[in-house]
Design a binder for these strands. Sequence first.
DNA 1: GGGCGGAATTGGTAACACCAATCCGTGTAG
DNA 2: CTACACGGATTGGTGTTACCAATTCCGCCC
Lengths: 234, 234
Amino acid sequence: MSDGLIATELFPDRLTGELAQRVLAMGAGKRLPSERRMAEELGVSRTALRDRLTHLESLGVLERRTGSGTYVRGVRPDTVTEALGLGLLASHLTFASLYSVRVALERQAAYEAALAGDPVKTAHMAAAVKRMEATEDGQELYEADVAFHRALFTASCSPALEFFADALSGVLSRSVQQRQQHIMRMTGDIGHMRQLHRDIHLAAAAEDPERAMRAVDSHFVWLDQGLGGGRESG
Amino acid sequence: MSDGLIATELFPDRLTGELAQRVLAMGAGKRLPSERRMAEELGVSRTALRDRLTHLESLGVLERRTGSGTYVRGVRPDTVTEALGLGLLASHLTFASLYSVRVALERQAAYEAALAGDPVKTAHMAAAVKRMEATEDGQELYEADVAFHRALFTASCSPALEFFADALSGVLSRSVQQRQQHIMRMTGDIGHMRQLHRDIHLAAAAEDPERAMRAVDSHFVWLDQGLGGGRESG
DNA sequence: GGGCGGAATTGGTAACACCAATCCGTGTAG
DNA sequence: CTACACGGATTGGTGTTACCAATTCCGCCC
């Protein structure tokens, strides 16, 4: 309802819009009536209803559990991930172009995280850096790295940034080679890597947006250099 | 197939994966066999097949035309738009946070457009600026503005940036009030607005990425100022 | 040759039966 | 009294058949 958006204008299909409205009315986690019941209530066949439910499920708003029921869940980035994955497969969206989106998002996240200046959330970034400093194992470094960047997006206090970042990493991390390359790279120059992440955190903690952005840029420059065309999530 | 991604790992469901593979094999615009035929070929009922087709349609890969057939179409941002719209309605994704994503994308687009330095594409940006300079009507200014920003993303030569930008503007432009505010703002200080857009174009044409980024930032600073919390697409 | 109309095709919906997974209440063994 | 096991009821998933509505295409008529 907010911002002048209404469900019926988002979906050209009447039935879908009606369903969406119902779904959004009840909070996330709630269970919808059974298909047979809803079909009767809405005056349509179960076939038609299931068609719309499938659509909403594809959008990530619903989750259907066989034998249990259909549940509302918050809009999740999975759908976007699938769409992007298809785009990749269709070789319409290239890997490099997706990567550049990631850079853009991360830079903005750093900027907003510094603006927000939430000490609790930036502490999570610090924790991830600490994990990096406590190990030299490639796998653990990788996990700490993932944790750090997730913490960064959380610290941005921008749900949409987080949403898109999740959707992207879903695609970017699916490629095993990329992940391997990533680990190899990180184990190559651990000290520098730690420094770069520390810089991002410090800039955010110091509530210096411009410096945070530059730190992120440095981080990606480091990722780019030496790897040539092969880019990765980082 | 590229980048180690395969359709069967993108979709947990076997039938969906098989379908996706078939769909991606044939180029965009092609027509799939009829549902009855495919159902027989794949050894499943029309019901189950339609379920998967609905899913792929939700993702934007397919388009079903009643009486005509089911057609493949390139992965389009419509799906993401719907997902984001739902996120807005569920008031999980706020308008402001979506807006910040837009800023991030646009900044990056300017950067890459300057890097790419495609004279033909930047010329389209110039054309949009010319349209702005040729009118003082709010509606026409609005359209020229939209055209300019589309041209910017096209000039970035990054399909993913363009993809997300389209998805976002689909949501952001649906709100009528926002559009009205936008027009009012632009008619308020036409000269300044023209200058800001000209700057972006010139920086891109001069192949100066840093300057292009700064120009975009100035543009959004201008949009922000004076409007308080009410943000818009711009 | 062009326009028109009907048959065949295609996606959309409906109604019914059945399967498999899940849930829940009950009853039984400890 | 508790813990577990069993079985019926509920729920989503699939198959089948029939029919509707929009579209397409081909052949007939003008």
